Amino acid sequence: MRGWASALGFSQIGVAPVDLSSAEPGFAAWLAQGFHGEMGYMAAHGMKRARPAELVPGTLSVLTARMDYLPRGTPPDWQARELARLQRPGEAIVSVYARGRDYHKVLRARLQKLAERIADEVGPLGFRVFTDSAPVLEAELAARSGQGWRGKHTLVLDRGGGSMFFLGEIYLDIALPASAPVGAHCGSCSACIAACPTGAIVAPHRLDARRCISYLTIEHPGAIPAPLRPLLANRIYGCDDCQLACPWNKFARTATLADFDVREGLVGSTLVQLFGWSEDEFLRRTEGSPIRRIGHERWLRNIAVALGNALRASGDGERPALRGALQARAGHPSALVREHVAWALDQGEGGAPD
């Protein structure tokens, strides 16, 4: 199976058992504390997320797979280069994983092919494939199948591949021998916790999504809380800071597929350029991209915040263009956009962060 998986672009596969009962108390406590924010789907299915055989009756084992996503040609010093973008407040930062094709589409299609290849070999087979698309404890299954260990930022880490990879699963109605899990290798390191701009990693292995920039710019539908807006800096879609700070990511591997190559406009563009996209242009440029799911309104909301932060951080020479871009959207039909534009313009008038 490893050869088939490799041919499809997966870097590793493993097999997890279906008994995840020991993970249920931690998941229940996370929900009880409200750390999932407005991601109602996290609670909607109860404990099915931790019970594969309830989600897909007949499931006897779970094949896990991971796929590296650093764009081909990424240089060895990519972490430093990405962090340097934060020193250029007028530049828009899109999370590395979202710069290419939507991973849901890529992984789902290739997991389906892998499952069909297995069925060709073993005979009639019941299966379902998932990738961040159903009530599945993906990181837990990955860790239990030897893909790596859970880092203090809650992501899966591998000694030979860091954390820059996507996860996917195939629920199978055949019992395969489980892979051996690996030990944790974070030790006393807390670089990810220290690096989080908003303090969202409230304790090792405990993330309050309500403070996470990835949640705020992607999952959160309403106004971004004013006290957190300055902390977004120029990040307009997602955040990689905990991964950029992680020493293990010096071993992160580049993708083998062209799907994750960078799309034009998503690296090195200015906030002013991206804020100028009409809805039609946004839809055209993000077709087949994970960014499209947030819609044009949230796209403008996020960039407005970043423009306000840039106004506060930039010199007199850059401010007119930033202010002009915001003023052009001051009368936008969306109250959500107007609110964030007004806040951003206030930053240029010497307004202190709320």
Rank of each mutant, 00 (worst) to 15 (best):
P177E: 13
S179P: 04
P181Y: 03
G183C: 04
G183N: 05
G183S: 14
G187Q: 12
G187K: 11
A200R: 10
I201V: 15
I201W: 07
H205M: 04
L207G: 04
A209S: 15
R210K: 13
R211F: 13
I213S: 05
Y215S: 01
L216D: 01
E219Q: 13
H220D: 06
P221Y: 01
P225M: 03
R229V: 06
L231Q: 12
A233R: 15
Y237K: 11
G238V: 07
C239T: 02
D241Y: 00
D241M: 09
D241I: 00
C242K: 08
A245Q: 05
C246Y: 13
C246I: 12
N249K: 11
A252G: 08
R253E: 07
R253Y: 02
T254V: 15
T254N: 07
A255W: 04
T256I: 02
F260S: 11
R263G: 09
R263K: 14
E264Q: 14
G265E: 04
L266H: 01
L266S: 06
T270N: 08
V272Y: 10
Q273P: 00
L274E: 04
L274A: 04
F275T: 01
G276M: 09
D280N: 11
D280I: 03
F282V: 05
L283I: 00
R284G: 00
R285H: 13
R285S: 02
G288S: 12
S289Q: 11
P290E: 12
G295C: 10
H296L: 05
H296D: 01
H296E: 02
W299R: 01
L300T: 08
N302G: 10
N302A: 11
N302S: 11
N302Q: 12
N309W: 04
N309Y: 01
A310E: 06
L311S: 04
R312C: 00
R312T: 02
A313C: 05
A313W: 03
